[in-house]
Amino acid sequence: RAGEAGARASFAAYLDRLGRGVAHVVNILDPDVVVIGGGLSRVPELIGGLPAATAPHVFSDRFDTPIRESLHGDASGVRGAAWLWDAE
């Protein structure tokens, strides 16, 4: 965010690769929504830039699938583990 060139290049490469990965999921499963969880779901530049990084790689002339951050963000895994603890 401070504009350091190496960090910006790393983020751009990560965003491109994640966009390609999301495009594979969209191409195969055609989901109604893509939910990004974990700590990176709290990075607004990631959520905001992911649709544009995904669109060129989908097998369609348009990409309308919404990409959202997880409701519980980086705590989603912990919440799921807590639910499993009580399941038995």
Rank of each mutant, 00 (worst) to 15 (best):
R1Y: 05
A2L: 13
A2Y: 14
A7C: 01
R8P: 00
R8N: 09
A9I: 06
A9T: 11
F11K: 07
A13M: 07
A13V: 07
A13I: 06
Y14V: 04
Y14R: 05
Y14K: 04
Y14Q: 04
L15F: 04
L15E: 08
D16C: 02
D16W: 00
D16A: 10
R17P: 00
R17K: 11
G19M: 02
G19Y: 00
V22E: 00
V22D: 00
V25A: 14
V25N: 01
I28Y: 14
I28Q: 12
D30E: 15
D30G: 04
P31F: 04
D32A: 13
V33K: 10
V33I: 12
I36L: 14
I36Y: 09
G39N: 07
L40H: 03
L40I: 13
S41P: 03
S41G: 15
S41K: 04
R42C: 10
R42G: 11
V43W: 01
P44M: 06
P44F: 05
E45S: 05
L46V: 12
L46S: 01
I47W: 02
G48M: 03
A53T: 05
A53Y: 00
A53H: 01
T54V: 11
A55G: 08
P56F: 05
V58N: 08
V58F: 12
F59L: 15
F59Y: 14
F63R: 05
D64S: 13
D64P: 03
T65A: 05
P66D: 10
P66M: 12
I67L: 13
I67S: 08
R68Y: 05
R68M: 15
E69P: 02
E69T: 04
E69V: 03
S70F: 02
L71A: 12
L71E: 14
L71Y: 07
H72T: 15
H72S: 13
S76F: 05
S76D: 13
S76I: 13
S76R: 07
G77L: 03
V78I: 14
V78G: 02
G80W: 04
G80N: 10
G80V: 06
A81T: 02
A81V: 01
A81Y: 11
A82C: 07
A82D: 04
W83Y: 12
W85K: 02
A87E: 14
A87F: 12
E88F: 09
